[in-house]
């Protein structure tokens, strides 16, 4: 399908180009994670994801025991634009090379 030139990975963003229309994992600031199908991106890593699962992790300290209580909230979003400046990490799907 893709020509050799198109599938070559030279720059970090090439990896993302090859992930178009595939499910990726995105870690955002403020302990948020997203998984969704990549439908669009630009060089700032602004992205549009489809069928997104968002996971928000919050850590609270118990008043009495001082133990950390980790809570995760999940929600699904059909279609989502993500601003690139909040992106910490992007993981394309694992592929055999």
């Amino acid at each position: 399908m893709a020509t050799e030139e198109e599938s070559a990975v030279k720059e970090p963003l090439d990896l993302i180009r090859l992930s178009l229309d595939e499910r990726i994992y995105v870690k955002l600031r403020s302990d948020r994670e997203l998984r969704g199908k990549l439908h669009a991106y630009d060089q700032h890593l602004n992205m549009i994801l489809g069928d997104v699962e968002e996971i928000i992790t919050t850590v609270e300290i118990d008043d009495e025991t001082y133990e950390e209580i980790v809570r995760t909230t999940r929600r699904t979003i059909p279609f989502l634009f993500v601003r690139g400046d909040g992106v910490i990490l992007v993981s394309p799907p694992l592929r055999s090379t």
Binding site: L28, S30, R32, I48, G50, I77, P78, F79, L80, F81, V82, R83, G86
Partner: peptide, 9 residues
């Protein structure tokens, strides 16, 4: 200040 925007599918 925008984190993300939920879009109409």
């Amino acid at each position: 200040v925008v984190r993300h925007v939920q879009l109409p599918p």
